[in-house]
Design a protein around this nucleic acid. Structure first.
Lengths: 118, 118
DNA sequence: AACAGAATTCGACGTCCTTCTATTTACGGT
DNA sequence: ACCGTAAATAGAAGGACGTCGAATTCTGTT
């Protein structure tokens, strides 16, 4: 039987400096990739299902196959997902490190905002 | 003298279901708001400076005042910032709860992705 | 009451983005 | 070797977005 994977992460508050325009530029690419309903649903399905193939994902939407392919490409270029070929099918999986990186960044901004203004 | 504000948050892993298309729709609005370099720099400045006025923010960019005003409006409609009038000036502040909400969501997706695919 | 400054709204222009159809590439089975 | 399927690429049409100048609203001051 499997024990539940109990992973815990704890952080303490610390103010974060504002982003440089260079940082903002590359970060915006990632958030822009998440800024579409189809892509958000895609990445959440990929994260939840593990490693679905494109055909599974395409079936879940009322969109043409090239459209899904385009959205997957955007997510992949943003570093949010990776692809693996298995025979005829191509399977996609999420990149947890990238998602965690964004989570930590937003967490830092939230804590900084709560710390300073009073 | 001020004691440092030591706030700690701990979470354990738990798989998260995929987003519904309704959830994805409203979430995409928020991520779309973050998906622009100017807006990202704006919100990070607001979070870092506490409660700057629009004039301070405008001075930090090489953009016309209406452009900054437009970006602030997008961030405000997404629930990421709020405004407060103080005499002639209007001050903006970040909404930490909204930023934390996004952080937790991405964290859940990251943990779900790391849990399932093997 | 009139004015000056801060900020938003309005209207327009150029660009990027989403979506599609048609075509192309790549793998497996017959 | 050929055909069928999976997926990506190319190209095009339509709408959305970022940016600006001009005009508007609101506040405090003279």
């Amino acid at each position: 039987m499997l024990e539940p994977d109990v992973t815990a992460v704890c952080r303490i508050s610390a103010p974060v400096p504002p982003l440089t325009s260079r940082e903002a530029g590359s970060l915006a690419e990632v958030f822009k990739a998440l800024g579409d309903p189809v892509r958000l649903e895609l990445i959440s399905m990929i994260a939840a299902y593990g490693e679905p193939c494109v055909c599974d994902l395409t079936k879940a939407f009322d969109l043409a196959a090239p459209t899904i392919s385009h959205h997957l490409k955007v997510l992949r270029k943003a570093g949010l997902i990776e692809s693996r070929r298995q025979g005829t099918w191509i399977h996609y999986r999420a990149v947890p490190e990238k998602l965690a990186e964004l989570s930590i960044l937003l967490d830092g901004q939230a804590r900084t905002a709560v710390l300073l203004p009073g």
